[in-house]
Write a protein that binds this DNA or RNA. Sequence first.
RNA 1: GCUGAUGUAGCUCAGCUGGUAGAGCACGUCCUUGGUAAGGACGAGGUCAUGGGUUCAAGUCCCAUCAUCAGCUCCA
Length: 636
Amino acid sequence: MPTLTLPDGSTKSLPEGATLLDAAASIGPRLAKDAIAGKLDGKLLDLSHKIEKDAKLEILTTKSPEATEILRHSASHLMAQAITRLFGKAKLWVGPPLNEGRYGFYYDMDLEHRITEDDLRKIEQEMEKIAKEDLKPVRVEMKTEEAIQKMVEADQPYKVELIRGFGVPSVSFYRQGEFLDLCEGPHVPRTGVFGGLKLMAVTGAYLHGDQKQKMLQRVYGCAFFTKKELDAHLKGIEDAEKNDHRRIGTDLDLFFTDPVAPGSPFFLPKGAFLYNALISFMREHYQRLGYQEVITPQVFSSELWKRSGHYDHYRDNMYFCRVGEEEFGMKPMNCPSHALMFRARLRSYRELPLRLADFGRLHRLEASGVLAGLTRVRSLSQDDSHIFCMPDQIEAEIQALLALAFEVYRVFGMELRLELSTRPPKSLGSDEIWAKAEGALRKVLDASGRPYQVKAGEGAFYGPKIDFHAKDALGREWQLATVQLDFNMAERFDLEYVGPDGHRARPVVIHRAILGSLERFLGVLIEHTGGKFPLWLAPEQVRVMTITDKEIPAGEKAAQALRDAGLRVGTDFRGDKINAKIRDASLQRIPCLAILGGREAETGAVSVRDRDRGDLGVLPLQDLAKDLRARIDTRT
RNA sequence: GCUGAUGUAGCUCAGCUGGUAGAGCACGUCCUUGGUAAGGACGAGGUCAUGGGUUCAAGUCCCAUCAUCAGCUCCA
């Protein structure tokens, strides 16, 4: 008779052969009703699983996030079943649940019928029908050989491949009604638990994620236990889409794009202001941290790109032109220029670390299908820098870089996810230097106290790296900051410095960007703030507006006084009602509105309405200026 | 680059089974001078993405191209 320990510490004994559902029922009928799956000693299992020995038990109800994941996994099966019913045999690949973002699951399949948007509605209806049938998914264990045989007969070649790939003696299937699918489980106890189902998109996805292989059809959907949760989710997506930087970029007159320059945003005055403000912000840090800014050419002879290795490895992403007999390439990166600068004369170890910063414009011929607003562009500039240092200096430099990144992102209030990518199978440089470099990165990361993920073997062939990712409005991740060690560049450009011992030695190069591409950073920042830029960054910080035409002279004076105090001031002296002016300014996310009526005009004061703090009442102009200046200076 | 979708005024969109374009907002002029999220009237504004084709007739149907969007691949 197995004894179960419940999460509250109490124990319960159940007869031999009892299932998780029986266990739930013995605790309470309500729990049995809401139960979706269970955990025995931390292992997720079906409710129909028979309990064989003593264990810790946890019953997952519809409220549990893990239950939602199980539901979504079951939803992908439900969808595959519906598609099979509607369109005949689909050769199935995989259909995992998704935790984050707008989609909850997908299924990849090879299906002769091309699924259309209209089909999605039909499939949904069929799924709901199957949900109503309230089928009970049944787990079926099978010996691998038998399973392969079965899948061969069922003409499911991808499943055969999956089973072979597992390399285990037996596998499990789930059968619901006429539909059988390879799956580890667990699944929901019955298809009736689906309350909210929605199919959202049909796209292509390469088999094995390999461009050379067949493109399968992928259908994305989302599933919840209740219609209410689904509706809330859909509403959430709708709201997030309001923060799409492309939408805000148009509404706030920040930038636009034109087919004459795909992937190359035009920054309008306000967008350009933001762009330059980000550069100024970084320059302040540079001044403090010993960086030296340089200016480098735009177009280089292909001779340089051959030397740097870009010609072999990156040519497809470069713009080339011909001048006379010679071929030139536009720079996609700054590193070769900086290498030439390092080499311009003999360097001493006393100069190291040499930190060259460059906001130069880069051009990368990104594939047409990857372009996206500001987040993936063909024309960009980065807060780029290359640090030339001795191996012993790596650790201190990395530490300073992490500190800088954390400091910068703290100001913007943005969350970062860190990744350490280590030595790939094919790499350059000695074991010793890789060990030293990876050790330094790890040490600094550990010391930072921040969580990070290790991506084993994902480093560049020339060195390990730390990447920093942030999310956009729809939960998609973008790489912003990056810190990459490079043992290759010094070699290729034959870089040397004279060491303390009088002998020449190779420096190590660190490629790093904190904001990363300014375009991408701005795009993510726009989505993060919804266009409500912090006061210090807002292109227009204060808007002075008048109630009637009579206050215009006082308004002009007030605006000038605020400008004299160093603020960026706009005015709205139109003959519209104050309501309309406030509405317009609010839609433009102006941080501070200074309103003048007859009363204020006489006393040299303004009525202040703050974007984030609401109505601040009537303030003398000087007090307002002081308050704003203080907030700007502290970037709060 | 690949799969799918979309492309009508500056923006958001309507335009039924083919009969040569419409709204709201924005913009301009005028009226209104109104105290914290839209006052009113009038006006201007379109090579219906581009190029072919079918048709007596194409925004509408077909093909190609370009761009954009959602994914996939890529991001030395």
